[in-house]
């Protein structure tokens, strides 16, 4: 048994069954599913408890967590959708627009920019160092300067303003990740394309871009999430028109305590848009695209 496990290139740590009823490989695969499910369950414990709390009445929340609730309520969801007097539909819309806008802007800036730096020698490494160093500065350093810049340019409390601010936040992440992926693209492909008379632009659009798909998907997901999660810049740079969900949710943290039910419901709702986006982006996160592109 042990020898067989080793000989199988895709073996897992799951102990092989004594009497294989189903083909071993499939059983193994289910073993992986079980292991991954367990890990996912642990990782999502906070969200799971938020989900439970979001349906409990205030009275039940205020008592032991293991007590079976007297009633279930949708009141907290109503509050998280605007019943509490805060314009949550708008906050959700703002967050979505800001996040999508940021993803688009980051890709538009970083993909050609990283190619220019990685392959065409733009900035000779110093530019990349500068961009990476931006990440090192605590975000709060930029709060007052951005406030000043945005107030003067009319970007304060606007969606384009928040897109700009979040692009700034995600620029080092986007650039570095795209750079690392471009580094992996074999030179031979580009050389061959150049011999065929392809321009640099065409190489980026037709050859590099498809090869980068999994990384770009990961970048898109992370940038979306980062923009979605931004709180500090949003507090400083918005006041009412462009307020995102994170700042809206802070309304449930009050001077007389935290509205656990309302903020739990908001948390649950607030993971849905990034989740949908991740599910959408996930299809680019698959193996084979790169291999296929190389062959073609």
């Amino acid at each position: 048994m042990a020898l067989e496990t080793i000989s199988d290139g895709r073996g897992t740590t799951v102990t092989p069954p004594r009497t294989p009823v189903v083909p071993r490989r499939r059983r193994r695969a289910w073993g992986v599913t079980a292991a991954v499910s367990a890990i996912a369950a642990v990782l999502n414990l906070p969200l799971f408890f938020a989900l439970l709390t979001s349906f409990k009445s205030d009275a039940d929340i205020a008592r032991s967590a293991l007590r079976v609730p007297d009633t279930l309520t949708l009141e907290h969801y109503a509050n998280a959708m605007g019943q509490a007097g805060y314009d949550f539909p708008r906050y959700f819309l703002n967050s979505t627009l800001i996040s999508i806008g940021t993803v688009v802007t980051i890709l538009v800036i970083c993909v050609p920019g990283a190619y220019a730096m990685g392959r065409l020698g733009l900035g000779r490494g110093h530019l990349l160092k500068g961009i990476a160093a931006l990440r090192l500065i605590p975000v709060i350093f930029f709060a007052v300067p951005f406030f000043l810049l945005f107030s003067r340019t009319g970007l304060y409390d606007t969606i384009p303003g928040m897109v700009t601010a979040n692009t700034f936040i995600s620029l080092p992440l986007g650039t570095l990740l795209v750079m690392s992926a471009i580094r992996e693209v074999p030179h031979e492909i580009e050389e061959a394309a150049k011999l065929d008379g392809c321009s640099d632009y065409r190489i980026v659009a037709r050859i590099v871009l498809p090869l980068l798909a999994p990384t770009l998907a990961a970048v898109a997901v992370l940038v979306f999430i980062t923009a979605w999660s931004d709180y500090l810049f949003a507090v400083i740079l918005t006041s009412s028109e462009a307020t995102p969900v994170t700042v809206g949710a802070a309304n449930f943290v009050t001077s007389t305590g935290i509205r656990w039910g309302d903020i739990s419901a908001t948390t649950v709702l607030s993971v849905l848009p990034p989740l949908v986006f991740a599910l959408f982006a996930q299809r680019y996160l698959v193996r084979g695209l790169s291999a296929g592109a190389i062959k073609g």
């Binding site: 990782l43 906070p46 969200l47 992370l222 999660s229 607030s270 989740l275």
Partner: peptide, 13 residues
């Protein structure tokens, strides 16, 4: 998707 779900919750929340 479930595995990367925790990253989707804003740190403030």
């Amino acid at each position: 998707s479930l595995t990367i779900l925790p990253v989707m919750i804003a740190p403030a929340l």
